[in-house]
Design a protein around this nucleic acid. Structure first.
Lengths: 194, 194
DNA sequence: TCAACTACATAACACCTGTTGTGAGGTAAA
DNA sequence: TTTACCTCACAACAGGTGTTATGTAGTTGA
């Protein structure tokens, strides 16, 4: 219990250093300094640096999945689908941090198949969740019958990922309200036109 | 002249190392080894490592812009807009490489404001180009009058970026044909429904 | 009380990094 | 030939890196 919390502390300190200094400057010593202790703590709770990195990355994907599942609490409907999709958008500071760490890890995974595989796993889970949502909506006749849930799940995931990315790098990006409107409008396009 | 070509050689070697080994393992020595020479060459043509990194990143954005402008050769129309957008998608090996290097640099830019500013500049250029395309199409009455070119430019950029990203990390991503269809369909949605 | 264990500090290790300086060979102009 | 310059090799440097071993309080349990 205490061990799990301490690992979580180290992971959160790593997040802060990543966002502030960049992933390649996130050394064991920098994390320890951020946490206000020595490297002894870090090495005590993580075997490797890779162990730590993988744990921190896992925490990112868990945070995303958790946000999605909490959005799934409301009753089935197109609004719920939109709510699920909105959890990916950097609409507040916390989700912005998550996105930054996620992007840092994604760039770090280029040329590292084992890390990219971790990204693949999490992205696959997200895709599956969205696709199930689409299939349920289609079965309940909330969506057009001629749309392909697999294609639309990928498209929606791409859309929200892309919007998040642009808001990260671009100055003249969409405002939070516009981001929501764009997603809402795309989902509306999947509904019965009648 | 020869100097410019040599700098280009070094930059291309850096690209290869980045895609194969990851950006943080792309050291001066690794680049030199990839190029088949010693670090003397690298240090002779680049003052710093940062100098090299910035040049390589600039080459990436230049490659993207160049692809876009060559797509703009054809006459104005919705097909041209789609062609411009398709230059971002990783539809062949070269564009896939560009995307990988771009993502690596983007992750590297987290926590590095000066590098993120470079991304902002290039993304701003791309956005402006797409927006001008949209405005021209709207003026020629090829697109609906009620759409906002600024919003749609951002959305389209987000869409193609997101699709590229997903095809990079996800196993069950959209096929190249599906990627094109999704973009085509979205652009069709901007046309007059009449 | 004694033993075992957890949680951390500290220090040392070998390794790799970017950077710099020196020098050699080749070429081209004076 | 001499001079200057471009291109590159090579060696050395200080500093940072992950990792490991050792030590030391504090706690827990018998």
């Amino acid at each position: 219990m205490a061990q799990r919390d301490r690992r979580h502390d180290v992971s959160e300190a790593a997040w802060r250093v990543i966002v502030r200094e960049g992933l390649d400057r996130t050394s064991m010593r920098a994390i320890a300094h951020e946490l206000g202790c020595t490297t002894g703590v870090v090495t005590h709770y993580f075997r490797d640096k890779q162990d730590l990195i993988l744990f921190a990355l896992h925490q990112v994907t868990q945070a995303l999945l958790q946000g999605m599942q909490s959005a799934q609490q409301q009753p089935l409907g197109c609004d719920r689908l939109v709510a699920v999709l909105l959890t990916f958008l950097p609409l507040d500071a916390e989700r912005q941090n998550i996105l930054q760490v996620w992007v840092a890890f994604l760039g770090y995974a280029i040329g590292r198949p084992e890390l990219m595989a971790e990204h693949q796993r999490s992205a696959g889970e997200l895709r599956a969740l969205i696709m199930e949502e689409l299939q349920a909506l289609q079965a309940a006749q909330h969506l057009r019958a001629d749309i392909d849930p697999a294609v639309e799940a990928n498209t929606l995931l791409a859309l929200v990922n892309g919007i998040g990315l642009d808001s990260l790098i671009q100055a003249q990006c969409l405002s939070p309200v516009q981001q929501q409107q764009v997603v809402q409008r795309y989902v509306d396009g999947l509904r019965h036109s009648a």
